[in-house]
């Protein structure tokens, strides 16, 4: 049964792990340099562009 060749299956798993690792590092870097605060500041004030006035 099945759908994936062994090499493709291994490559896919490796790619998934690599992207997850990169994304974790990116989130950690973004949080450490204060991006959360920038997002929060934008999100708690009325975004005039978002509502079509900006």
């Amino acid at each position: 049964m099945t759908t994936m060749q062994p090499l493709k299956y291994k490559k896919r798993t490796l790619l998934q792990c690599t992207v997850l690792l990169i994304s974790a590092l990116m989130i950690a870097h973004g949080v450490s340099r204060g991006e959360l605060e920038t997002v929060w500041n934008k999100a708690v004030n009325i975004c005039l562009e978002c509502i079509g006035l900006g």
């Binding site: 997850l20 994304s23 989130i27 204060g34 991006e35 920038t38």
Partner: peptide
């Protein structure tokens, strides 16, 4: 301060790959 969001792009990559 920034030209690129590591936090948001990293979040979307993580959610997307999961």
């Amino acid at each position: 301060q920034y030209n690129f969001s590591f936090y948001v792009v990293g979040f979307l990559l993580a959610v997307g790959v999961l």
